[in-house]
Write a protein that binds this DNA or RNA. Structure first.
Lengths: 237, 237
DNA sequence: ACCTGAACACCGTTCAAGT
DNA sequence: ACCTGAACACCGTTCAAGT
């Protein structure tokens, strides 16, 4: 694709950004040692100077994404509002690179930049009254969920808006044709289900549910032992 | 691996189950047309009689998983308790096949069994007071989150418990060696962060956060417009 | 209807060699 | 230090053919 022949052009960061560009345009599966090398006008084997193997290249992408997160500075807003802001910052970066968003969950604890986010979230949960162990669990889950919910909607990640719109129409037709006796709620919600709007509403809604859930957990932890709060059990697996 | 030479042994379901077994033992990347064919003692091309391409094989796995979900029968428990039960049933199936859990998010609306779960969740959210559009969004998010949070923890999905335990120790050592001035919360939470316990607590906690969040949203929707409830905003992306 | 066989265009990676 | 080149063991998939 885009090439160039100057020497000394290559570096870890250049390769990571090239790989990210490929992923953004054509999906994660298109990120290939040979493809990235070709885009850089270089032999596949050249990449092995900078990365031990392909997994290290992917780890490089994940780390790069964490570095792009612009965390808001600490203020004296309530802990849940601050948590919302931090998760929003993460979400903002991942939305722009949704095909690789799923990668970062595995590198939260192994990259410097990922640890910065973790440190911040842990601190906010502690402010909310979470005991350390519970905070760790919840923090892991929050970051993973943000990462994954932003990720690829499925195997039909066609990037052309044209094809996307016709896929929506096809799916809408499929849902509308269902048996109304068996799937009344699905049919009633067919339009918003099929559309999968990538808009503000979708993301605002996840964040509210997550932070709302964390808030509810904090309240429950505060009055621990009191039997007035209904306990929701999960059956043994 | 295991082979057998009888005729007529092959079918969509047999192949799907063979593929799932491979995924469970060696991860999703090991699921390969050639590998599944080999396990069935058959030529790779034989699979193309039952599946148009590899994606259809994966879709078959996803559908099979939805069929395994044993949804609790409707009773007159509160909507959020019932929602917890449905999500638990989904979680129970996916926990046993964590390497493929990430697949199902893309097939919720395209498989009969997936639609059954969707129908149920939509109905419960409506009982909780969600308007149709919001219910659709939240339903999609809930199922996707359950699927993805159960999924592969990252690239280090070593399945041998021996290697897993030593990986935990290594990560623990790494976290403990961090600068205490910069990462005090991470260091304090090092043990639960590194361990990544797959136990009851982890999953109970996600479900509580999610259902607690849905509950909070429902309450907010009920008193819509009233300014007493603090509104958490998400910045523009 | 159900499966085989050869072939094609791809992968990641090793090993040895060039500059 | 940084990159090339040939080779190996894998992929998914097409096309034609067998029974």
């Amino acid at each position: 694709m885009t090439s160039g022949k100057q020497r000394g052009r290559l570096s870890r960061e250049v390769l990571v950004r090239r790989a990210l560009a490929v992923a953004d345009r054509e999906g994660l599966d298109a990120v290939t040692i040979r493809r990235v090398a070709g885009d850089c006008g270089v032999t596949p084997m050249a990449l092995y100077w900078y990365f031990r193997d392909k997994e290290q290249l992917l780890a490089g992408i994940a780390e790069y994404l964490f570095e792009q997160v612009q965390m808001p500075s600490t203020d004296n807003a309530p802990w849940d509002a601050q948590l919302m802001a931090v998760l929003s910052a993460l979400l903002t970066v991942l939305r722009q690179h949704s095909s690789v968003a799923g990668l970062i969950a595995g590198y939260v604890l192994s990259s410097e930049a990922g640890l910065r986010v973790t440190e911040r979230v842990l601190g906010l949960l502690r402010d909310g009254g979470f005991p350390p162990g519970q905070a760790a669990v919840t923090c892991t889950q929050l970051v993973a969920i943000i990462a994954l919910i932003t990720g690829p909607p499925g195997p039909d990640r066609t990037l052309e808006p044209q094809a996307c719109e016709s896929a929506v129409r096809a799916r809408l037709a499929g849902l509308s044709a269902l048996d109304p006796a068996r799937f009344p709620s699905v049919i009633a919600a067919a339009a918003p289900l099929a559309r999968r709007d990538d808009d503000q509403r979708y993301y605002r809604s996840v964040l509210q549910m997550l932070v709302g859930g964390a808030h509810a957990m904090a309240a429950q932890l505060a009055e621990r032992g009191c039997g007035t709060q209904r306990q929701l059990g999960v059956p043994e697996g």
